[in-house]
Design a protein around this nucleic acid. Structure first.
Lengths: 143, 143
DNA sequence: TTATTTTGACTACAGTTGTAAACTAATAAG
DNA sequence: CTTATTAGTTTACAACTGTAGTCAAAATAA
């Protein structure tokens, strides 16, 4: 069973996934046009990326006659979560908080997003530790 | 002037950077040992990575006689912020909020981190839009 | 039904990344 | 001083990425 956690989507593949996710399903022509407009890519480039995404089972080809329709197999939300987790997994746990702060500051968030984050934080505050340990070196050091 | 925004640090290079950042400065021997223990890497692997980091000016070699000392040139905080921004830049703006929510839920945060995030959110709430537009396709569509 | 266009499959190719061996120049040990 | 050891530099090499050209099969137009 392929899910977002097993699939690594590269930077340029992300662009194609975003288009497919937003369209819900699309023909290669639609994707080629969108990518050409968005990124200036040649038709071949989009085709290659689409192929690679099919191989890694992030996208599936549907229909029995040309032109085929392409649909996402992995979800956008899960893929984004997996990518974000992957990033934070490679960074110092002690500094995750301030990194998240930076992200929040630089992104546009809706009122609902903010309310949601506030609720999550309020809940998390109940059991939050006084400080988070640095996990960058072997053995435990206070950083 | 090299700063975090101009340097792309790869996944394995990150591991070395984390060690250097945490130690403040280190000899290659110290790094080789740390990386061996942490990741099981051979001495060569760490040496190569260290070299590449020097080439891309993320790390500098100090001292006039062997063994040299290696120090970070780019800051940890800035590099983490740059990496996080880079990630979110490639993803749908509309879903940044829920992705951040996922990250917050999966990470350990200190009381101080949480308080800081709450303050930032409270401030941000004052001017937050009702909703954030999807920016995945050319032209504006409601996603 | 032949010619044309489209779509999809296969090939290409340089640059990056992960991983490490080999070689060379210092330095330390005897 | 000679030898052994360590630190640093070069080379290697396959897999993965970004970007795209070529070819063949299918569909559409003439």
């Amino acid at each position: 069973m392929k899910d977002a956690k097993n699939v690594t989507i590269t930077d340029s593949e992300w662009m194609v996934m975003r288009a497919i996710w937003t369209m819900g399903h699309a023909t290669s022509r639609e994707l080629i046009d969108a990518m050409n407009e968005l990124e200036g890519w040649s038709a071949s480039t989009t085709k290659t990326l689409l192929h690679r995404l099919i191989q890694k089972q992030a996208v599936a080809q549907h229909g029995r006659s040309r032109p085929f329709t392409y649909k996402p197999v992995v979800g956008e939300k899960e893929s984004m979560a997996a990518a974000a987790d992957d990033l934070f997994d490679h960074m110092c746990a002690m500094r995750a908080g301030s990194t998240i702060a930076g992200v929040i500051q630089s992104r546009e968030l809706s009122r609902a997003d903010i309310a949601n984050l506030q609720a999550i934080l309020a809940e998390k505050a109940k059991t939050a530790p006084e400080e988070v340990q640095c996990n960058c070196l072997p053995g435990d050091q206070t950083c």
